[in-house]
Amino acid sequence: MTHNSTLRFGNRVENYAKYRPSYPDKVLDYLQQQCHLTPETPIADIGSGTGIFTKLLLDRGYTVYAVEPNESMRKEAEKQLKSTSGFHSVNGTAEDTTLDDKIANLIVCAQAFHWFNNAETKAEFKRISAPYGHVALIWNNRCIDADDFAIAYELLLTQQTSDYERVNHQNLTETDFANFYREGKYKLVKFPNFQVFNFEQLAGRAFSSSYIPAQDTEAGHRFNAQLNALFHQYQTNGTVMFQYDTEIYLGRV
């Protein structure tokens, strides 16, 4: 993680916690089956943010080390999850988790890996991964051409945001994953996911993204006005939908 990437979401925590999508139950079922997880399995959630994926793991009874360098996001997760059995909040980065050697039977990175330094992260994940442990890199990948609204929203992002195309996780290639996983071997599976929004929720979801101008700036007000026009053009019964492919890259390092 670069210093910049660890700070990017500090002013977006409330929107991030409220409006980012969760993950389908089938994702947890798949990881449990493929990684032979039991309630005693220690899991490291790296770049855990506000704890969206951490909570799903805790709900299944796992012990989770939630590693997050952004203080605001980490404190939000602690506020939500501090009383949950098995939750351990850790101030660390992907490249320096501060966790013990061979502690994790599974390492997960949900919506985070594209911010990491791949080479340093690989070395750190090797250190903290238990023998035969797995690494799951997970994204909710918004379907940018699912319908007319999705196409129009994508066009708005490319035209009105500063670095959307630069920080898009889809910039990662098969070569990046092959270089990261041991012997270049990994599985990729996808599950459908979606969110339905009224305008307030859509705006919250949009402004949770670090590449969109901050909500209380002049540029943010302009973006919000354009988003509002887009919503009213494409809404049906007062809502619009984001469709996602939830992608899981699974292998060993």
Rank of each mutant, 00 (worst) to 15 (best):
Y30Q: 08
E165H: 00
S89F: 12
I212E: 02
A203C: 14
V108N: 03
I103A: 09
R74S: 13
P131Q: 03
E218Q: 09
H221Q: 14
E76V: 07
A152S: 15
A130N: 03
Y181A: 05
L37A: 08
M73F: 11
T54Q: 05
V108C: 10
G92T: 02
E183Q: 12
Q160R: 06
N105R: 12
I212T: 08
D59C: 11
Q80T: 12
Y234P: 06
N171Y: 00
Q243V: 12
Y244K: 08
G133M: 06
K187F: 10
G51E: 03
H169L: 03
L58A: 10
R252Q: 14
E124Q: 03
F125P: 00
T246K: 00
K18E: 09
T239P: 02
Q233S: 10
I43C: 08
A146H: 13
Y23N: 02
F53V: 03
N237I: 04
A203S: 15
T246F: 07
R166K: 11
D148P: 06
C35P: 00
P42F: 10
E183G: 05
A112V: 01
I46E: 00
Q215Y: 13
R252H: 12
N171P: 08
I107M: 07
I248W: 02
L202N: 02
K122G: 01
Y23V: 03
Q32M: 08
F197M: 04
L56K: 09
N224K: 11
T97H: 05
G61Q: 09
R205C: 03
I52P: 01
R12A: 04
G251M: 06
S5C: 04
A152M: 07
N70M: 11
H3N: 13
T41A: 15
S85F: 13
N198H: 09
A229N: 15
E95Y: 07
P192A: 01
S85N: 15
K75T: 13
P21H: 05
E78Y: 11
A152R: 00
E76N: 11
N168G: 04
L250H: 01
Q33G: 11
D29R: 00
F223Q: 04
E14V: 11
Q170T: 15
V240W: 01
P21T: 04
Y244L: 09
Y65M: 10
G184E: 08
Q201H: 05
D25E: 15
L230Q: 07
L81T: 09
E247P: 01
K26G: 05
T2D: 03
E71R: 04
P131Y: 10
Q243T: 14
T217D: 07
Y211T: 05
N171S: 12
Y181M: 07
D45G: 09
A219T: 02
F242K: 00
A150L: 11
L155G: 10
I103C: 15
W115Y: 03
N141E: 13
D176W: 00
D101M: 06
I46V: 14
P24S: 05
Y244E: 06
Y244V: 11
A44N: 03
T2V: 04
D59F: 12
L188G: 02
Q235C: 13
L202M: 14
D59T: 08
N179Y: 03
F197P: 03
G251T: 02
V240R: 01
N140Q: 07
F194E: 15
N91M: 11
R222F: 15
H36Q: 15
